[in-house]
Simulated scan of single mutants.
Amino acid sequence: MPDLRTAGLALAAESARYAGLGWMRGTSGNLSVTLTRDPLRLAVTASGLDKGELTAADVVEVDGSGAALPGQPLAPSAEAGLHARIAAVAGAGAVVHLHMLAPVVAAERWPDGIELSDLEMLKGFGRAAHDDLVRVPVVANSQDMQVLGDAFEAGYDPATPALVVARHGVYVWGADLRQARWRAECLEWLLRFKTATPEG
């Protein structure tokens, strides 16, 4: 697993990529990488910074509850607690929280979960292109990460590496940042298709 400096370099590069796609506008969104499992430690992008301009130093090491370890000059994202919960429950090596429009629109139309099937791009999301009904869970937004974490865990399906937070954004995870990115890109395409087709 990476050290904090290596994680910071990778998180800065990924943040710039997502900002360029319009998925981390301004200071919105946050990314994390798991540093250690026992005890659980994550590197999380710092709060309040332009995600297109992060450096390797703009990350914070947090514990298994999402709280910053002592002595660090920056504050972690307010959503670090949910990153930690996903890492613990799903075993994720990286979590990306993005503000794509398609997942938020899809959650408005299907607040009980977004169903996808028979689309080739599902393979890039880690599922089968045919004969595989994928349901992406949707949870109500909250500023309390314990509440969001409980909602995530209640609907968690190990086969579906994503969670949509209504009127907020999407969390996608993977073994590392690259896999999380691939899954996020494919999910964005899938949900754009879902919301653009008349039958949904």
Results as ranks from 00 to 15, higher is better:
V95C: 11
T195I: 15
P158K: 12
S32T: 12
A43N: 11
G81D: 02
A128R: 14
W182L: 15
P103N: 07
R109S: 11
G93A: 05
V95R: 03
A102P: 04
L54S: 01
A106W: 01
A159G: 10
D144T: 11
D144K: 13
F152K: 10
F152R: 09
A88M: 04
F125V: 02
G200P: 05
A88S: 11
A107G: 06
L122Q: 13
L11W: 07
V165M: 07
V165R: 06
W173A: 09
M100I: 12
E188I: 00
A57S: 14
V59R: 00
W173R: 12
V164Q: 03
R109M: 15
A102G: 05
L4Y: 08
P158Y: 11
V59S: 01
A84D: 05
P73K: 09
P198L: 15
S15A: 14
P198Y: 14
V33L: 14
D144A: 10
V89C: 10
D58N: 05
H168I: 09
A140K: 10
T45A: 13
V95Y: 06
L122E: 11
S117T: 14
R25F: 10
D176L: 07
G124N: 10
D50R: 14
A7W: 00
P198F: 13
V136K: 00
S32M: 09
A184G: 02
V164W: 01
A106Q: 02
T160S: 02
V170T: 07
G174P: 12
A67W: 04
D63I: 06
C186P: 00
G126H: 00
A196V: 08
R167H: 12
R178E: 15
L122M: 15
I114L: 00
S142P: 02
R85S: 06
T6D: 14
H97Y: 03
D63W: 08
L35W: 04
E61L: 10
R109N: 09
F125T: 01
G48W: 09
L69A: 09
A56L: 07
G48H: 06
G169Y: 00
W173Y: 13
A43W: 09
V59F: 02
T27M: 10
L191N: 01
P103K: 01
G93W: 05
R192T: 15
D132G: 07
H168P: 10
E53G: 12
S117N: 11
G64H: 03
V44L: 08
R109Y: 13
A151S: 14
V139F: 10
L42M: 00
A180M: 03
A162N: 00
M1T: 14
A102R: 00
